[in-house]
Structures are given as C-alpha cells and as structure tokens.
Amino acid sequence: MTATPAAQRDLRIAARALARHGLAHAYGHCSVRLDEGNFLVCASRPMGLIAPGEPGTVVPVAGALPAGVLGEVRLHQQIYRRHAHVRAVTRTMPPSLMALGTARRTPRTRHGMGAYFGAGAALWDDPQLVRDDERAAAVIDAMGGANAIVMRGNGVLVASDSLAKAAVLTWYLEDAARIELAVLAAGLQDESVVLDAAERERRATDAGGIFERMWEYLSAGDPEINFQETRA
C-alpha cells in the first residue's frame, strides 16, 4: 500500500499547522486513514520541522508498527481498528490541556467551541507513555464514543472524520481548556454557565464554513499551500 502525493502533502500541512499554533512541540504526531486496513502517519520527528516533500509512513491498522514509527502510534491503530468512521487522528501536547490534565480535569462546555465535544472529552488517568498494544487498547476503551481523550500529564488524542477537522477540533479543545483555566483562576466556576445538552447540540454545527474557516487560519502560511487553495 502506498499513499498518494496529495495525502502525503495534506498530512504534512496538518502536522505543521498543529506545531505552528502551539499544539505540539518536539512530541506529537497525526495520521489519516487511507483505506480499511492502512493509515498514513507523519514523519517521526517534531511536526514543525517536517520539510516539504518529506514522506510519512504507511502503517497497517492491525499488526506490528513499521520500523522507525513512534511507539504511541499504536493509539492510532486502535482507533482506526475500532471506529470505522474515523478518518484522521491527532496526538498533541497543548499546554492548557496538559495543565488541566494534571488535575484530572477536562474542559467543561462553557463556550461554543467546547460544544463540539458534547458533555466533554474523556480522561485517561495515567501519565505514562503508551507504547504497547494492551495499554493503547485500554486508552481507546476509556475514550468510548468521545472524539477526544485527555491523558493526564501526557497530552490529548483527537479523532474525526477528516484530517482538517481533526486539526480544528484539537484547536477547539485547547481553547476550551484556556477558557476553563481562566474561569478557575478568576474564581468564577460557580457563576460561569455550562451549556446544556440542547445548547451543545444546537451550537456544534458544521454549517456556514465553520471548520473551513478555522482550517484556513490554521494552515495559512504553510510552504506547501497557497491562499487560493485554502478557499477552494
């Protein structure tokens, strides 16, 4: 199985976007599903340093990781294996989510961007790296039907039905964490309104180019993209 040049390029753009906006540093990775049995993961290096034309690696959904692929890519394997609708995964280290995670907290749905996570992201209460199949399976079990899981002191995993949307949702969840920390710091946790189920459902829309506009913002300035392409 080989990935098309377009898939390779789109993955590089997403990887660099995540790094450019402070959602990942030396650690982190992202991937996109190619077909039922394979996905493409970005190069095993800091995502912001992935060069134009630098290829990712095709990884089987079931089986051993190819040589040189990072151990925590097993998390991607487990998501793709269990959730046929998932087309892309991000594994990042956003600072506000990292801070909340150390307190065994995930952001409450206090603003519009948080509504895309329903009642909230799941929590994995273990700071250890996930480098074996058993632990990776347990993390995805804990994730359940959520589209994100915060890993205590170890970043976050986000899954979605497109690569651009997975990157956007990663930014949204970090923004929800920023809001959560600000509310807590101001002592307003009791006064700050948490959206109810009906409000969340109404607000979590994809109409009106919501995701497209944020993707344009995230990917702007990438060396493999131009302004016209972001508006196509």
Rank of each mutant, 00 (worst) to 15 (best):
Arg202Pro: 03
Arg202Asp: 08
Leu184Glu: 06
Asn147Val: 10
Ala121Thr: 10
His83Cys: 10
Glu191Val: 00
Arg152Tyr: 05
Pro55Arg: 03
Ala7His: 06
Glu224Ser: 15
Arg178Met: 14
His76Glu: 01
Leu173Gln: 04
Leu100Met: 06
Ala198Thr: 01
Val41Trp: 00
Ala15Cys: 04
Glu201Lys: 11
Gly101Val: 08
Ser44Pro: 03
Arg135Phe: 09
Arg9Phe: 09
His76Ser: 09
Arg74Cys: 11
Glu54Val: 13
Ala186Asp: 13
Leu195Gln: 00
Val130Gly: 03
Tyr116Phe: 15
Leu65Phe: 14
Ala137Phe: 08
Gly118Ile: 00
Gly112Met: 13
Leu184Thr: 08
Ile79Lys: 07
Asp132Pro: 09
Leu40Asp: 07
Thr90His: 04
Pro127Lys: 12
Ala24Glu: 04
Leu184Asn: 08
Ala121Ile: 09
Ser192Ala: 15
Thr2Tyr: 05
Thr106Met: 09
Glu199Asp: 02
Cys42Glu: 04
Pro223Gln: 06
Gly112Glu: 01
Arg105Thr: 00
Leu173Tyr: 13
Val59Asn: 03
Arg82Gln: 03
Val130Pro: 00
Val32Leu: 13
Asp132Ala: 14
Val58Thr: 00
Ile140Ser: 08
Leu49Phe: 05
Phe117Arg: 10
Val61Gly: 02
Arg231Leu: 14
Ala6Val: 14
Ser96Thr: 02
Pro223Gly: 08
Ala198Gln: 10
Trp215Asn: 08
Arg82Ala: 13
Pro5Met: 14
Val156Ile: 05
Met151Ile: 12
Leu75His: 08
Ser192Thr: 07
Thr170Cys: 11
Gly144Leu: 14
Leu11Phe: 03
Leu173Lys: 01
Arg104Gly: 06
Arg202Leu: 12
Val150Ile: 10
Gln128Lys: 14
Arg33Val: 12
Arg178Tyr: 01
Asn147Cys: 15
Glu36His: 11
Val130Glu: 01
